[in-house]
């Protein structure tokens, strides 16, 4: 893809000890677009997100965001650049309230004042969180926790939002609820890098997609084209 993007990952290599989880991945996320990352378990999708958000350090390659290489920056510095990662398993502060979790979401934004309007916006999108704002996050149901995780990320006004398996373990109705949010985010100017097991839903909501296999990109292109590609249909969409 020749699109110049908000995020450009260039020949990224990540290893855990001797296991080479990501081997030379390059990808582009254009501004305010949804890019899906699909592939089997262990293909390196989560590792790639962790490397972009600075949790693990790649040993080769670059992560260019708005022209700046993020490799080597501490996590909190990357968050301050409004690159927000919602990890798999949601990462709630279980013993803090819903409201405190949301307030922490905006922690990296400097200066006060916008916290309140951001909170109102999030409550308007997810009324369930307003109802439960005084409850401990750990007492929410799985679906509510996933909603809180996304809401908390929105409090940081992400420019790039990375969602890792947002539909994992959720009832179909909730999955639809989660996917309903994504277009609203891009409409507000947020780019989304989406890792999903549910390849069909991911491809339907994305503009572009990459298929990862054992740490390498094996296919990439417009999501609509991949949705129709026989090899994707066969391997990831369960079609003949």
């Amino acid at each position: 893809m020749a699109v110049s993007g908000l995020l450009e990952v260039d020949d990224l290599h990540v290893s855990y000890g001797r296991i080479r989880a990501v081997q030379g991945v390059s990808l582009t996320v254009p501004d305010a677009a949804v890019v899906a990352l699909i592939g089997a378990n262990g293909a390196g999708k989560s590792t790639l997100l962790r490397a972009i958000s600075g949790i693990i350090r790649p040993h080769r390659g670059a992560v260019r965001y708005l022209g700046e290489d993020l490799v080597g920056l501490p996590v909190h510095q990357i968050v301050r650049r409004r690159v927000i990662h919602v990890p798999e398993g949601r990462g709630m502060l279980a013993r803090m309230t819903v409201l405190e979790n949301l307030r922490l979401g905006g922690f990296a934004l400097k200066g006060a004042g916008h916290g309140k309007s951001d909170l109102e916006r999030v409550f308007a999108l997810f009324p369930v969180l307003r109802e439960r704002r005084a409850q401990l996050a750990g007492s929410l149901s799985g679906g509510e926790q996933q909603i809180l995780a996304i809401a908390r990320a929105m409090m940081a006004r992400p420019r790039l939002l990375m969602l890792d398996e947002p539909s994992l373990g959720l009832a179909p109705l909730l999955v639809r609820e989660i996917f309903r949010i994504i277009p609203r985010l891009t409409a507000e100017g947020t780019a989304v890098l989406l890792v999903e097991q549910n390849a069909r839903m991911a491809l339907q909501c994305a503009a572009y997609a990459y298929v990862l296999q054992t740490g390498r990109v094996v296919l990439s292109g417009r999501a609509a084209d991949l949705l129709a590609a026989p090899e994707v249909q066969h391997a990831y969409l369960g079609a003949g």
Binding site: S53, P74, V79, H85, G91, L93, M96, F107, A108, A156
Partner: peptide
């Protein structure tokens, strides 16, 4: 704000980092 951050770190360091707290 700082107290909130300290409590977040006490609750889960990984998550605290992920919301942009400098440990």
């Amino acid at each position: 704000r700082t107290g909130l951050a300290l409590r977040a770190i006490a609750s889960d360091q990984q998550v605290a980092m992920a919301v942009g707290i400098d440990l």
